[in-house]
Design a protein around this nucleic acid. Structure first.
Lengths: 158, 158
DNA sequence: TTAAATCCGAGCGACGCAGTTGGTTTTTCC
DNA sequence: GGAAAAACCAACTGCGTCGCTCGGATTTAA
């Protein structure tokens, strides 16, 4: 899960689209002026969003874009995954884990990045466009009472 | 909280340092060969880590680096914050929030990114170098029973 | 037929990343 | 004292991505 401003732009645009969704589709030039994003850049983002099945397009004058599903069924994680490059997997991260697990000393941090990716995905896929619109950013994750992690507790872990 | 491979390299090196910590300091060339990272690149990373007070250096032959604090007192979040550029705050994100809150329609996603940053920081600051070494990646975050977030629940939120 | 819109591809300037080069300083050991 | 091992330091480079522009083409409502 890559986190760049590119994904942010896409989410901003999609939230704008969800907000102004009515009978008529929403044109990119409207979104561009409202969100202050370059129109051509938006076109590129929406090309990816369309290919990912998140939006549907209506061509011709009066046309524009519509959410393919409802705003309550479109998750932020999907948007970011759609527009971001799948990251180059520079060393061992994210790939099949095999070929990295072999030499454990070299890749002690593998589990860490994997778990971090899980956390991010978990959070972003728990938020829908509707949630953002209605500002329901659920504090859905609760910190367990384990305050000091200097030692002790939770020793065995598979 | 930026997430690049740069931060990953730094954490890999720091974990390696913590793992091989003994009476003598650990030289960067040792870490470089073990982790397959360019020596000069490591030097640049450790220059930042030293400035951030995470490691201490010993010059001269037989010298190298030591953790400034213990491995149980060095958090992954600190390492990443030390080496990564503070990101250019391209539009509204991360800066003082003022000047963005003004026009709410433009920055509906502000809260989202802020909360995401919180989640990431919370996770990474809950993991110490010792945790990584001992593979205690505490599942410290528990998903609340809120399964379907299509609607309902948790309406009022300030 | 005009014009509004989506579509498409090529290219561009800037910036950070990962690494290289070529040093200098400090310090240990012979 | 000299050699060598290490940390230090600065500049530069190749590369990829980002955000964006330009110049179109296709579709379609009015």
């Amino acid at each position: 899960m890559k986190l760049s401003t590119k994904g942010r732009y896409a989410v901003m645009a999609m939230v704008d689209l969800a907000r102004h969704a009515q009978a008529k589709p929403v044109s990119l030039s409207d979104i561009a002026t409202r969100q202050e994003i370059s129109l051509s850049y938006l076109e590129q983002l929406f090309a990816r969003l369309r290919r990912a099945g998140l939006v549907k397009s209506v061509r011709g004058p009066g046309g524009g874009y519509r959410l393919a599903r409802g705003s309550a069924d479109t998750r932020v994680s999907e948007i970011i995954l759609a527009v971001d490059e799948p990251i180059s997997a520079t060393r061992c991260t994210e790939m099949g884990a095999t070929g990295c697990r072999a030499d454990r000393s070299k890749c002690l941090t593998h589990d860490l990045w994997e778990e971090l990716g899980n956390q991010i995905h978990l959070f972003l896929s728990s938020v829908t466009l509707l949630d953002v619109l209605e500002r329901k950013l659920a504090p859905r994750f609760i910190e367990a009472p384990a305050a000091a992690n200097t030692e002790s507790s939770m020793a065995a872990a598979s």
